[in-house]
C-alpha cells in the first residue's frame, strides 16, 4: 500500500489527539493514575517485534521457531487487554472519575491504532508484521 505525505500527517494528528486525551484524563482531575494506560499501549507492539526477531521469521530456510512468535502474540494480547482493564478497575473502585476512564481508554486505543497503521504502511519490505 502506498503511503503518501497526507497519511503521515493524519497519523501524526491522531497520535497527538490520543496523547492529549490520555493527558487530559489525568490533568483535569489532577489524578495521574490513568497514565498507566499510555504505557501499556505504547509497550503493546514491542513483544511482536522482539519475538519476531528472535524467531528469525525472515529466514525461511532455517527452522523458524513458532513458539517465540506465539509467545509474542500472547504477550501482545495480555498488554492490550490490560490497557482496557486498568481504567475499568480504577473506575470500579472509584479511584478515578467516569469521564477520565473513557478518555484514557479512547486515547490509548488511538495511540495503539496509530502505531499499528504506521507499522502496517511503512513495512512494505517485510512480508507481514502481523501485530
Amino acid at each position: 500500500m502506498k503511503a503518501g505525505l497526507k497519511t503521515v500527517v493524519v497519523l501524526a494528528f491522531v497520535l497527538a489527539i490520543g496523547f492529549t486525551l490520555v493527558i487530559l484524563s489525568c490533568a483535569l482531575w489532577n489524578n495521574w493514575l490513568p497514565l498507566i494506560v499510555a504505557f501499556t499501549f505504547v509497550l503493546a507492539p514491542l513483544p511482536n517485534s522482539v519475538c519476531g526477531r528472535l524467531a528469525g521469521s525472515n529466514d525461511f530456510t532455517a527452522e523458524s521457531n513458532t513458539a517465540y512468535l506465539s509467545f509474542g502474540h500472547f504477550l501482545t494480547g495480555t498488554l492490550v487487554s490490560s490497557g482496557f482493564a486498568i481504567p475499568l478497575i480504577l473506575l470500579h473502585s472509584k479511584l478515578i472519575q467516569g469521564p477520565a476512564c473513557w478518555m484514557s481508554m479512547a486515547g490509548g486505543s488511538l495511540v495503539y491504532g496509530t502505531i499499528l497503521v504506521y507499522a502496517g504502511l511503512f513495512n512494505e519490505g517485510q512480508d507481514e508484521m502481523g501485530f
Binding site: 500472547f74 501482545t76 487487554s81 490490560s82 478497575i89 473502585s93 472509584k94 479511584l95
Partner: peptide
Amino acid sequence: GREIGTYLAGGLFAASFFLLIDASTISSH
C-alpha cells in the same frame, strides 16, 4: 486462526487476572 486464538488467549489471561485485582482494589479501598 492460530494467531487470533493466541491473541484471544493472552487477552483472556490478563482479563481474568485483572478481575481478581479489581476485587482486591475494591477490598483495600
